[in-house]
Nucleic acid binder design. Structure first.
Lengths: 233, 233, 233, 233
DNA sequence: GATGAATGAGGATTCATTCAT
DNA sequence: TATGAATGAATCCTCATTCAT
């Protein structure tokens, strides 16, 4: 969490509106932070997280390296904050609404309801995918990627455990982890294609997930996966 | 390539092994190459490909940077060669045998026959997973990872098109790509766990893939995925 | 180029020097650049251009390698900029004045007027000679040396074509090229000697050039070369 | 002077023809040396002396670096030996003959007699020019270039002192040095051009030198420089 | 807050040279 | 002899980070 250096105010005694200044300061600071995070997102997407350099981010943001470090202590923190914000953005725009709304949907529609916005969100925020994946190292999720990773995983776990009440915690976790992993894998395929091919991959991902999850739901849900509707950006 | 001056041999008539000299020469080099590739594999696994440095690889191999560069022009080439060798190793030990053997198996056994050795191979050669994934950037596969990526993808495509004769080339490709992506995703999960959890993830991956692929096979194959045998290292 | 956020100035109405800030910033940078170029000049003279290393230049300038690279992308650029500045310095201090002044001088005095300052300038800026010559490879002038080389050559061509109106462009070019080459050759000899010997070499160079160029001038100029005055540093 | 490692012979006691073996050895060694020097010449011409690497020379010669160092202790020695051999080749093919023959020629013909073969020799042995010039550093001639430089200079001095009997040693040296410098400068121009332009530059160089030297010869030689015959390769 | 200058360790890569075979 | 493997210091250049202004 970037904390602009407030102690630098050699507090002049006659401040008339004690929080007027700080507010403006914070506003400016917020803009800077947003600017930097946007730049970071852009650079992460172009070069990947590991190869992204703070200097490149500052340059992309149109500020000096020093300015960047006034808001973030290091590269890690940038990724962390970016992940945090993207997660919040996701939660606020869709996430929480979804959780409630999907409670009683049949699987086909639940997948549509969850995947379509998530895919759209990734399309609009390509850095999200970068942060979902973490660095090069297969299977290892480092701190800066944990917010996004764990955040999404937890939501998925919630949804799944909501639909599979009679399942052990461990198995729910496993199914959630696998679902998430499959989603990420499919998402890469989707984002790597355009137009009709992309739509086809969206349908394919829904197929995989439907067929995977459907059997867990007992008899509640008819096997209609191949006809999953295709709604893609 | 400078050809060792063979004419300098005041040709004794009974030279028993005419290429003994060059062979021994290359033997040391071959060992070094193997050593360097092993070191590279190790470093790639520890730090990821992007963050891996040639100096680190040389250090890990116990040689000087200069030695590394006598065998490889750059990091890319190391990854490429490592991928090449791993692919060959895989093909020779299992790949070709598999392709033939799996032609007529029911899906459950086909998955066992394909996935178990592949998982085992990845367990024994963790760098394989690194090379399957490529660098940080989601969806982008650079040259040095192409051998492994395309190699495996092609095999999967072959198997799938063998089992789905009446499907368009494009759809086969899509199913293969999705299968491969799902496999990679599941593999990461598997390799990230140990013992019973790992076994459970193996079963889970087989479930995903079985349920995904089974419907494509028409009526030929009974839906017995949940009972898939778990055979893992 | 990141624009310093000027709007942050809670604009005092009477800002006297609105660009004072950026100027001071650049001032330090300018000094560094000058310092680096001076160091480069020194290193070029000591080791030659090809063998000069950027690290050695940075060391000579008393800064870290990174600092050097904040101002120059590579060695080439240093040589280029150094050449550029030396040419400007030359042009401003003597060059333009010369061109006008020498228009109607007899050859002896023209040579004095041109060569004496040029030799003095080379004595004071020994790197100039390095840049006039280019790297090791005889006859090849690479980009970074072109400014100085072509710059001087063009001036010489101008002077010569001014004095030989009835000569073809090609021949003027040839005479200029030869004159320049001879000058460079003589200059090396001059700079390699001291005191009386140097003076003698200066006279000798003037002789060569006078005798070479005099016949081209028709009958206008008496053959008084051997008596060329010797004015050297 | 490269001395092949002869002590390695674990001298078998029954050598029938004591110098038969060494001779063959030397023959091989000579061939190697020639091969290496040829390669060195080629590399020097392509990259310049300073940037030439011993590895590149070995590669060009088709031998291993170790072999190179069996014949030469370092890069310097290669340049030295190459210079030596080129000087000998020059002396034997033209040099000595010239010195005698040119004793009584008028200057025009003397220049033809000296310059034409010298230019031709440089055309056939482009490394000669590299060695005449030495490294990047203007005016400094290092050891490895001394043979060629001093060798040619001495010949020129001889010729000049032969034609100017009543001149001081110092002035002869100066005139010789200047003549040589001018020649080198002109030679670069000549070698940098082709066809008609080259011929024109040859003529131009002869003009420079004729006009420069003619006045020193008193009345013996008519002023016919502009009509100097053009004989070029 | 913001800047740009500065750092120095570290990265990739090369090179003259040596050594075991 | 000849080889090619090996070295390690030196090259160019980058980067995360700090600091004076």
């Amino acid at each position: 969490m970037p904390e602009p250096n407030r102690s630098a105010n050699h507090a002049t005694p006659d401040t008339p509106a004690p929080e007027a200044r700080p507010v403006r300061r914070q506003a400016r600071g917020e803009r800077r932070i947003a600017q930097l995070l946007e730049a970071a997102a852009s650079v992460f997407c172009e070069t990947g997280y590991t190869a992204a350099s703070t200097n490149a981010i500052a340059r992309e943001a149109g500020v000096s390296p020093g300015t960047l470090y006034q808001y973030f202590p290091n590269k890690e923190a940038i990724a962390f904050e970016l992940g945090d914000r993207l997660m919040h953005r996701w939660s606020e725009s869709h996430g929480t609404a979804l959780a409630a709304a999907t409670q009683d949907l049949p699987l086909t529609q639940l997948l549509d309801a969850v995947l379509d916005p998530l895919i759209a969100f990734n399309y609009e925020n390509p850095a999200f995918a970068v942060l979902m994946h973490g660095p090069d190292i297969p299977g290892r999720i480092t701190q800066e990627f944990d917010t996004v990773h764990q955040g999404l995983l937890t939501r998925i776990e919630e949804i799944i455990s909501g639909h599979l009440p009679g399942t052990s915690r461990a198995e729910t976790a496993r199914i959630a982890a696998m679902s998430f992993a499959v989603f990420k894998a499919g998402l890469d395929l989707i984002l790597a294609h355009e137009g009709g091919e992309r739509a086809a991959y969206v349908a394919e991902l829904k197929s995989v997930m439907f067929r995977y999850l459907d059997p867990y739901l007992g008899e509640e849900s008819p096997a209609c996966a191949p006809g999953a509707r295709i709604d893609t950006p």
